[in-house]
């Protein structure tokens, strides 16, 4: 599992997220969470429990209304929009349930979008994307359009894209939510391999079977975490 004393990638302290409105909704309440380098963590919970909200906070796509969030030792709570965008580009990789591949680009071009806003050159991004497509077993499909791929293949392209910038943390929101069992299995296998190679992964799912593939699981119910 995790080596004792490994540095923390994510540190949440008393994080809350309240959505304004009438009445206001407390979607996250007093969340404390530490993810250390090299961990493969699953957060599991029923629909509406606040999983996506938590992932958005972790991904710097949303800001908590209470508490502190340190990403790779950097306090993000006080960071401005540009700094947060820079941290997303450099530190975070995203994998979405709906893949979010651009239909008019080839597999290689889609994967090469990783690192675009980090300022990597097109050549460098393409080079890394080629290597990562090879790594996820899709080198032979690099000229194909996403529409011609299976769901599992699409998600593997998205994973390659998420890894191009060399992130400290891979965030995945229901990565198998749109996949059949076989495709889901191939994606989870890839996660296990990446984990074995040292990638830090935080995966959200409502499926306990999927969560069981992670090295550690945390439950979320009504916006509260429990081990």
């Amino acid at each position: 599992m995790t080596a004792a004393g490994a540095p923390a990638v994510v540190e949440l302290e008393g994080v809350g997220r309240t959505f304004g409105g009438n009445p206001p909704v407390d979607v996250l309440r007093d969340v404390d969470l530490t993810v250390t380098e090299g961990e493969f963590l699953a957060i599991v919970g029923p629909s509406g429990s606040g999983k996506s909200t938590l992932l958005n906070v972790l991904g710097l796509l949303d800001s908590p209304t209470a508490g502190h969030y340190r990403l790779a030792g950097i306090d993000t709570t006080t960071a401005g929009e540009r700094r947060r965008a820079g941290l997303r580009a450099a530190r975070l990789g995203f994998v979405f349930q709906a893949f979010q591949l651009l239909p008019h680009l080839t597999v290689l071009e889609n994967a090469s979008l990783g690192g675009l806003y980090l300022g990597l050159s097109g050549r460098e991004r393409a080079l890394r994307a080629e290597r990562l497509l090879d790594r996820v077993g899709l080198a032979h499909r690099r000229r194909a359009r996403p529409a011609t791929l299976s769901g599992g293949e699409r998600q593997r392209v998205a994973i390659a894209r998420a890894l191009v910038a060399g992130p400290s943390l891979l965030l995945a929101d229901e990565p198998t939510g749109n996949l059949d069992t076989a495709s889901a299995a191939s994606v989870l296998e890839l996660f296990e391999e990446l984990h074995a190679e040292g990638t830090t992964i935080l995966m959200i799912t409502h499926d306990p079977g999927v969560a069981a593939r992670a090295s550690r699981g945390v439950r979320i119910v009504d916006g509260r975490l429990s081990a």
Binding site: E81, A85, F94, L102, L113, G114, Y117, A165
Partner: peptide
């Protein structure tokens, strides 16, 4: 909208 969200996740600012 999806592409815009993706680009923001990849580190694009509003200005980008």
């Amino acid at each position: 909208v999806g592409e815009i969200g993706l680009r923001r996740a990849l580190g694009a600012t509003r200005g980008d």
